[in-house]
Amino acid sequence: MPELPEVETVRRTLIQLVAGKRIERVTVSLPRIIQRPSEPEAFAAALAGQTIRTVERRGKFLRIILDELVLVSHLRMEGRYGVYRQDEPVELHTHVIFHFDDGTELRYKDVRQFGTMHLFAPGDEFVMAPLKKLGIEPLDESFTLDAFKQKLAKKTTKIKPLLLNQEYVVGLGNIYVDEALFLAGIHPERTADTINGPEWERLYEAVKTTLQRAVDAGGSSIKSYVNGQGEMGMFQHALLVYGRKNEPCNKCGRLIDKTVVGGRGTHICLSCQPLPKVRGKKNG
């Protein structure tokens, strides 16, 4: 957490809250959050006087577009942004503060301290870490069935770890992979090379449908996620398998099972997502 729908929701919220604001100065209280440049003093100096023009997204990363720079921010497990008045008390675990010239502040809070920030000249962020190896965007026009199959179909790896691998398809995490595989009727331990043509079509549609529904609902607040306005997402109320161990499947009534696939807790309906005893036709 957060995954694509949550980051997309934060992006949309931040546009409303900070687009057009001019940064007067930046305070960094946890230097390791700042990955590029290596010195937080240089990071703060570069941002002073810059105006936030818009906020974009690449996978699970935010791209904050400024006058002459791009700030790439990864929220990781617990990172969150919020806008406050300068006279409001600073909450515990607030590590970076962007002070605006209108008397407000964008504050970055991160209890787990895993989040990162990288500063780039425009365009450089796409050819350098952490964005350079990212795969296709599942809600972008470039995400076609052919592109999806080209990335994954010949792999002999289990489908769930493949979908979680950000070098192939970006933005999918544990929640939405479990949900998409359920919608497609595909067992998470199937290897990609055993999935046939109709199954790829179902999975492709399931990925898009699941993510779009989650975006429309403002994401899923499973643990601590809130958007930039402190609001929870609502998609957790529509989850079909994730987090529903021992609850009846909405489709067939069988109890949802929980197992481990690729080191990740995995929710599955064994009736709706059977694991074939005999491997079927490859990639028809």
Rank of each mutant, 00 (worst) to 15 (best):
P5W: 06
E6I: 13
V7K: 12
E8M: 10
E8W: 13
T9N: 02
T9G: 04
T9R: 04
T13G: 14
T13D: 15
I15V: 07
V18L: 05
V18R: 00
G20R: 09
G20D: 10
K21E: 15
K21Q: 15
E24M: 10
R25F: 02
R25Q: 07
V28A: 01
V28H: 02
S29D: 00
S29C: 00
L30G: 03
L30R: 07
L30F: 01
P31W: 02
R32N: 07
I33C: 04
I34L: 01
I34K: 05
I34M: 03
I34A: 10
I34C: 05
P37E: 08
P37Q: 02
S38M: 03
P40F: 00
P40Q: 00
E41H: 03
E41F: 01
A42Y: 02
F43Y: 12
F43R: 07
A44D: 01
A44C: 13
A45H: 09
A45K: 15
L47C: 06
G49Q: 13
Q50A: 10
T51M: 10
I52E: 02
I52Q: 03
I52F: 01
T54N: 15
T54P: 15
V55I: 03
R57G: 12
K60W: 14
K60P: 12
D67L: 05
E68P: 06
V70E: 15
V70C: 14
V70F: 09
L71K: 07
L71Q: 05
L71H: 14
V72P: 07
V72Y: 04
L75F: 06
R76T: 01
R76Q: 13
M77S: 04
E78Q: 10
R80M: 13
R80H: 13
Y81N: 12
G82T: 05
Y84G: 12
Y84D: 14
R85K: 10
E88P: 10
E88V: 05
V90K: 00
L92M: 08
H93F: 14
T94P: 05
V96E: 04
I97N: 03
I97K: 08
F98H: 11
F100C: 03
F100M: 06
D102I: 02
G103P: 05
G103K: 03
E105C: 05
R107Y: 06
Y108T: 12
Y108K: 05
K109C: 00
K109V: 09
D110G: 14
D110R: 13
V111C: 03
F114G: 10
G115R: 07
G115K: 07
H118S: 12
L119E: 04
L119H: 02
A121S: 10
P122C: 08
P122T: 07
G123S: 03
G123L: 13
G123H: 04
D124Y: 06
D124R: 11
E125T: 03
F126W: 15
A129Q: 14
A129T: 13
A129C: 07
P130G: 05
P130L: 00
